[in-house]
């Protein structure tokens, strides 16, 4: 019996064939940057429990050009991931009906964007207070 020789469509680089696939893969890639940030936060917490010197070293790392450069990328990734999350949320949640009308998708997406901006401003004020 001869081995079967079925044609298998090559899949390498499939996400470069369509801009929507590329956007999807970029969204998935944001997870790597956000995971790195979770690691930064955890490192900060550990440094804090080790005492003032360890925390100062952590602050010094945050001020290094390498860290600032990485955090620019993480920030862009976080913003893009947030945008995609808000955008798919009307499709992921059951429809909300108010006074017999279904709340339009743009209202659901828009209210979350507003909430995100409010959280941003509130946390910046909280952190900046001396």
């Amino acid at each position: 019996m001869s081995a079967r020789n079925t044609y298998v469509r090559p899949m390498s680089g499939w996400y470069r064939r369509n801009p929507h696939f590329l956007a999807y893969m970029l969204r998935e890639l944001t997870a790597v940057f956000l995971a790195g940030y979770a690691g930064v936060l955890l490192a900060g917490v550990i440094a804090l429990t080790r005492g003032p010197d360890a925390y100062a070293a952590f602050r010094e790392f945050l001020s290094s050009p390498l860290s600032v450069g990485l955090h620019v990328l993480i920030f862009i990734a976080a913003l893009y991931n947030a945008y995609t999350w808000f955008k798919v949320s009307p499709k992921a949640m059951p429809p909300i009906v108010l006074a017999g009308r279904r709340i339009p998708d743009r209202v659901i997406v828009g209210s979350q964007l507003v909430a995100c901006v409010l959280v941003f401003v509130a946390m910046l004020l909280l952190a900046g207070m001396s």
Binding site: Y37, L62, V68, I74, F75, A78, A115, M123, A127, S130
Partner: peptide, 30 residues
């Protein structure tokens, strides 16, 4: 939800605003 609502603000505060000196002198002090 955490990644979309809280993460952008946190990343900006700890990773960019703090090292670039945009916050108060005692911000995120020990």
């Amino acid at each position: 939800v955490v990644a979309s609502l809280v993460a952008p603000a946190l990343v900006f505060i700890t990773g960019l605003a703090l090292p670039l000196g945009l916050l108060g002198p005692d911000a995120l002090s020990y």
